[in-house]
Design a protein around this nucleic acid. Structure first.
Lengths: 253, 253
DNA sequence: CGAAAACTTGATTAGCATCAAACCAGGTGG
DNA sequence: CCACCTGGTTTGATGCTAATCAAGTTTTCG
């Protein structure tokens, strides 16, 4: 597992290039993992030194720029991704072939778990910001879950976390007035980005997350800026007045 | 594990009584499980006779009438429920304290998995129809997943199935015109009930599943009846003209 | 039979989608 | 360097869908 250098979370536009998979750093896997500052958050928190030494497969440092695809829907994956830094969107197409973003995954989350069961990916995974992840071969994960009970437990926790998140999106982000849904999503961003200064995604993406048109998303956000709940810095970066957002959600105004 | 007598799926209203937990039938657990006609669909499909013989905890036959609660949100469970027959709704409250039904679980599904991780239930589970389930003690399940690799795999498949279902509800049942959402939900019912003759839930429940008011749900369903896509038998039972429903969903009319 | 619960239907309104146009920033090429 | 082009954003005008409020009807059950 590679080091933890956190990539800048600036949204990078431009043509999509291939993932920045690095050809494996020097030294043994175990050393790299031991030095990882976010290992305690990851699937590998359960592994002791002995377990790290015994890894049979190479764990790759997978880097993605904003907009790049981690995997496509309806494909078979050979790896699952443990996210060290950045935010990933999971999306699928509605029956009318419109994009619908199902949920986000951030530091400590794992995406692509279905690959462990031999299933094709049910959704597409796209980097919302620049992303650093460990690409864990499914064979390695399966081997570990055979031998290591705590590791299996960690896997199940990741599954449950995804399920909790899905439930929350159903209950909090897919119904209610547009304004409230946007406010709740913005709060979620402050969690994922770890602070009140966040990157707002494209209006189209916000719309796809909340089940509304990009125009409605734009209108709501413009209003929030005028009311001072958001302060723009540059074109995509904003500061959130978290207390006032919480207050706005408490009182139906 | 008890026998498989399928309860009638008629919706029973009236005051909620305690679950019909039967005090365990005669004979060893293994015998009961061997005779279970839906074992191949259940978590226990992975267990051979030896494994069944070695079960340390009593697995209860849990019966619930329509409307009864399997477990409450924010409580700690000591069992998970493997559903043999009937349909269960998982619901939680929105931030505005309105009911939101997240998804359904039917034959072969497991609800309450989070109890295995020591977490409180994140949602409430309520029987939509009469339900027959096996109440599996979490201690028993944890013990099995230690010793039996295939069983662990089955557990993970159940987690993933719940996640797939949640994603589908997000993409297909929480956005789009009311009429289409109702049509898609009705198709789902034909799956869960195993045929074109289904029990329609209360309009209020349909509304809570689709994020719409009960009046809108009622209007849509009344229209579908007038158009002949649904035929009423009694007050809650209807026959679905599946081909025409599929056609109606294909063409945006 | 009467009361309560669930369902249906109507009238009105609010909120959002839609269509359309203008605006703005960044990047490209003359 | 400026003009232009492109992709994203904002804003406006209009119409439709579904929420809301309000009866009225049917069904269920004590």
């Amino acid at each position: 597992m590679p080091d933890i250098a956190t990539p800048p979370l600036t949204r990078v536009s431009g043509p999509l290039t291939t993932p920045m998979n690095r050809p494996g750093s020097t030294g043994a896997q175990a050393d790299t993992c031991r030095q990882c500052g976010v290992r305690h958050l990851s699937l590998f928190a359960a592994l002791d030194d002995a377990a790290l030494q015994s890894l049979h497969y190479r764990i790759e440092d997978a880097r993605f720029r904003a907009g790049q695809t981690l995997y496509e829907a309806d494909t078979l994956g050979r790896t699952i991704f443990s996210i060290r830094a950045g935010v990933v969107m999971l999306e699928r197409l509605t029956p009318q072939a419109e994009r619908r973003i199902l949920r986000l995954a951030g530091q400590g989350d794992v995406v692509g778990l279905e690959a462990l069961l031999g299933q094709t990916h049910s959704s597409r995974a796209i980097a919302l910001s620049d992303v650093a992840a460990c690409a864990l071969p499914t064979a390695q994960v399966q081997e570990l879950s055979l031998s290591n009970r705590a590791f299996t437990q960690h896997l199940m926790v990741r599954w449950q976390r995804a399920l909790d998140e899905a439930d929350e999106w159903l209950a909090e982000l897919s119904i209610g007035p547009a304004r409230e849904r946007v406010l709740r999503l913005i709060l979620k961003f402050t969690d994922y980005f770890g602070g009140s200064r966040i990157q707002l995604p494209m209006r189209e993406d916000i719309g796809a997350m909340l089940g509304m048109t990009l125009e409605t998303a734009s209108r709501v956000i413009s209003n929030l800026r005028r009311e001072g709940l958001l302060t723009a810095h540059g074109h995509t970066e904003v500061t959130v007045d978290v207390p006032r957002v919480l207050e706005a959600l408490r009182s139906p105004d």
